[in-house]
Structures are given as structure tokens and as C-alpha cells.
Amino acid sequence: MDTNKNSYTFIFALVMVIIVAFTLSFAATSLKPLQDANLKQEKMQNILKTVGVNLSREEAQIQFTNYVKKGIVIDNKGNLVEEKQGNEIEKGIAFTLNMKSEWKRKPEIQKIPLFVAEVEGKTFYVIPLNGMGMWSDIWGNVALESDKNTIAGVNFDHASETSGLGAEITTDWFQKDWKGKKIMSESGEFASVVTVKGGAKDGDNHGVDAISGGTVTSTATSDMFSNRVKLYMPYFNKLK
């Protein structure tokens, strides 16, 4: 057989592409339910982690409603759009919302998700975050204490930040620095929390250490934080 003939080359390429396309789409569709289940468990695990409940993924799914009491959706004026409780939370908009596409819609019609958790009698507000890192998406959650000002915990994750540099946003040392910071200034204005290159000063309520060599991702993380968290201010003001 002459493998250099044009017709052979075309047929070979065609057959190869069909086989590969079939194999990959078969793998993708047949594995999708398992992958989605893993993602759902991970989301629950991450939400619980910000309020100080560290569980395995499987355990997180079972215990989720023991801690997370409400999944609510608000609009940009602070009005309540939807409220789900108990086992309904994971079916509600707050939990299933695709934040990446929601985020591109006009502010007036955006749905803004929020979770209310209770741990050992204390109430926490968990805000899901979503933004753009250096290479691709970054996301996470932040839990605020019942004063809606002090950060109880954060977690961040990313799709493809540089390992060892930007990807450090997922590490404990970076995230634990956020704990106890305030999102409001002394005068009651929204002040957010920013990453400081070279390290935040002691006693700075609005600054955390940035990552050496990961400046772009660090800045993107604090931008994401302020862009998302400020959307909840109208709602928090109404609660007061």
C-alpha cells in the first residue's frame, strides 16, 4: 500500500478524526453525570469550609443542610428574589446559577446568590465569587460574620493559574490571611480587601499579603472580591 498517495492521506485523516471524535465525545457524555456530582460535592465542601466546617466531599454533601439554612437570590437593588431552605437549596437558583454567564448580563437583571449558614449558633453569610485570573477563570466563596463586615473565611480556586505562583491563591497561607479583615471602613463605606505587593502592614484591616511572582493573579483575586461583594451592600443595608 502506498501511504504517500493523496487519497490515502485524506482517508487516513478522515478515519482518524472520526475515531477520535467518537471516543472523546463518548467519554465526555458518559462521564458527565459523575463529573457533575463531584463538582456539586466540591461546591458544598467549599461553602462549608469558609464557615470553618472542614469535611470530606462525600461528608459535605450529607451534612450540607445541617449548616446551610438558606439559599437566596437578590437583585442589584437588594430585593429578595428567591429563598430556598433545606433540601430545596441545592435545586434553587442560588446553588445552580452559572455565575460566569450571569455576570455578563446587565446589572439590573442579574441574579445575585447568597447563602445563609448557621454554625454553633452563629450566623454566617456566604457569598460566591467569580472572576477572571491571569489565564482563565478564578472563583471562590467568602463567609461574612453576622455583622456583615468581618470575614470569617475565604476560599479561592482557579482553572489554570501558574502552578507555584498564581495558583497559590488556593493555599491555606494565602487564604487564612483574609480571616478577620473588614470589608467596611470605619465610616461605614464599602472598602473591600486588597492584596498588597510586598506584604500588608500589621493591623491593616483591608490588606492581605500578595503572592510573590503572582501579582496579576493576586490583584485579580482582590478585584473579584470587591466587584462581587459590593453587589450585596444594598441587601445588607436593608437587613440592618
Binding site: 504517500n4 478524526v17 477520535v20 471516543t23 472523546l24 467519554a27 465526555a28 462521564l31 459523575l34 463529573q35
Partner: peptide
């Protein structure tokens, strides 16, 4: 013995890319 030599680099790329994606999909599930 069956790879046409003129598109061998493309074939190689397809093999490595689909292997990697396949592995990634399986790992994501299990």
C-alpha cells in the same frame, strides 16, 4: 506503518492531545 508521512506530525499531535483529554476526563469522574 500506516501513518502517511506527510501528516505524521498532525497524527502525533492528535494522539497526544486525545490521550491527555481522555485521561483528564476519566480522572475528573473517578
Amino acid at each position: 506503518n500506516i501513518i502517511p508521512s506527510r501528516i505524521r506530525i498532525i497524527v502525533q499531535l492528535v494522539v497526544v492531545a486525545s490521550l491527555v483529554i481522555l485521561v483528564d476526563q476519566v480522572l475528573k469522574a473517578y
